[in-house]
Design a protein around this nucleic acid. Structure first.
Length: 244
DNA sequence: GCTTTAATAT
DNA sequence: CATATTAAAG
């Protein structure tokens, strides 16, 4: 008896996060057709709630980037801190800046809406691999649909052209990709500087204006922002640059 | 001391 | 240029 059936009994459970119910439905439907088990939530907060309290283990999170309260970036950050679950972005805007930010924060894939078969394949592969890494088996279910992924994410170095009159040497900017987990790979080397992304800056502005320019001091701003990655120094630095 | 902030450095 | 770091005040 040969086991022609290479279909594993793995259930790839996927959590889809989006404020737009229509998008949720479309995405969920698509994923379900591709044999994902899908659960949908309409906010990052709900997503975290499900991850933490549902008792279910998820193999993948697909989230929209732009969301009220907590956006995709923040959600990804939170997830990375507590779980080892790959996060993919699914967003209407495919601005390079957005994509870059996502990749830098460890997002596995950036997809444009609507979700497509290409993306599905990638997701499936990623989730499957991620799941099997606990076992020793090397069985990857490949539903090969070889389309050249034009939108595949480059692991390229971010190079910003600086047109200085000074002749600079080659700067080899190595970008270290780190999968945030409890792995004792390189915790001490967290030498990254804070990037004031648009969502982050928005929150900053929001808090500052809520406090009023009079009382908008770094300490209070920091507290109200409730963003663990930030320190008072960061806020202070940003504050004095943003408000002259 | 701890926080803010101007100035300076990367 | 955007952030970080320093150091002087408050």
């Amino acid at each position: 008896m040969e086991e022609q059936n290479n279909q594993l009994f793995e259930i790839i459970r996927c959590l889809v996060v989006d404020v737009d119910v229509t998008c949720l439905l479309i995405t969920a439907t698509f994923l379900k057709k591709s044999k994902f088990e899908v659960l949908t939530v309409k906010s990052a907060k709900d997503a975290l709630g499900v991850l933490r309290g549902s008792g279910l283990s998820f193999d993948l999170v697909v989230t929209e980037v732009h969301m009220p309260e907590m956006n995709g970036f923040q959600l990804q950050q939170e997830i990375a801190k507590e779980f080892i679950i790959p996060v993919a972005f699914l967003s209407a805007d495919e601005k390079e800046s957005t994509i870059m930010k996502g990749l830098e924060s460890g997002v596995i894939l950036f997809m444009g809406k609507p979700i497509s078969q290409n993306n599905i394949n990638y997701l499936w592969n990623y989730a499957t691999v991620g799941k099997k890494n606990h076992k020793g088996k090397h069985v990857i279910n490949q539903q090969n649909q070889d389309k050249t992924n034009e939108r595949l994410i480059p692991h390229e170095v971010i190079h910003i052209e600086s047109s200085s009159s000074n002749s600079e040497r080659d700067k080899s900017v190595r970008k270290c990709e780190e999968t945030e987990s409890e792995q004792s790979s390189s915790p001490p080397s967290k030498k990254s500087r804070v990037v004031w992304t648009d969502p982050l800056h928005d929150k900053f502005v929001e808090v500052v204006s809520k406090l009023g320019m009079k009382k908008a001091h770094p300490r209070k701003i920091l507290d109200l922002m409730d963003t663990p990655e930030l320190t008072r120094i960061h806020v202070a630095s940003h504050l004095q640059v943003y408000y002259s």
